[in-house]
Design a binder for these strands. Sequence first.
DNA 1: ATCCAATGGGGTAATTAGGGGC
DNA 2: GGTGTCCTAATTACCCCATTGG
Lengths: 70, 70
Amino acid sequence: MSAPAINRAPETLLTPGQVAALFHVDPKTVTRWAHAGRLGSLRTPGGHRRFRESEVLQLLASLTTEAVRR
Amino acid sequence: MSAPAINRAPETLLTPGQVAALFHVDPKTVTRWAHAGRLGSLRTPGGHRRFRESEVLQLLASLTTEAVRR
DNA sequence: ATCCAATGGGGTAATTAGGGGC
DNA sequence: GGTGTCCTAATTACCCCATTGG
C-alpha cells in the first residue's frame, strides 16, 4: 500500500448525546452499549466517547422495522 | 458544521408507555401491535421498542371516526 | 485563565420484554 | 380475535458530583 497509514478520516463522529437523541434513550444508556461492545467507541484522551455516524446509522437502520401496509 | 444528517432530530420517538397513554391501553397491547406489524418498531440494542410519533399519530387519526354533520 | 454544557462513574427506582392463562 | 393482568429477568432512566470539551 502506498497509501499513508493514517487516513484522514472524514468520518463524522457523534457525541453520546447525539446518539441518545437518535434512539430516544439516555446518554448513559449509549455509554452502556459501548461498554457492552454493541457499539464501537472512540475515546478522547480525557475519557469521553465518540461514535461513528455511519456505524450508528447502520445500527439504527438494522433495528428499524417498517409497519405493514394494508 | 459540515456534518449532514444528525443535526436535526429525524423524528420524535415515543416509548411504549407514551403510546399506551395516547390510546389509553396497556403498554403490552402496544407491543402486540408492533409484533403484528401494525406499528413500525424501532428496537434499541437492549431490545426495548421505540415508536415514531408521526406514525402513531397517523394511526390514531386513521382510527378516529368523526360524527357526520347532517 | 474563565465560563458553561456535556460526559463519566456509581447506585437505585421505574419501565419494558417475554411467556402463560383468563 | 383481541385485551388486561400475573410473574421473573433484563434494560433503561434519574440522582449525585468531579472531570472533560470547546
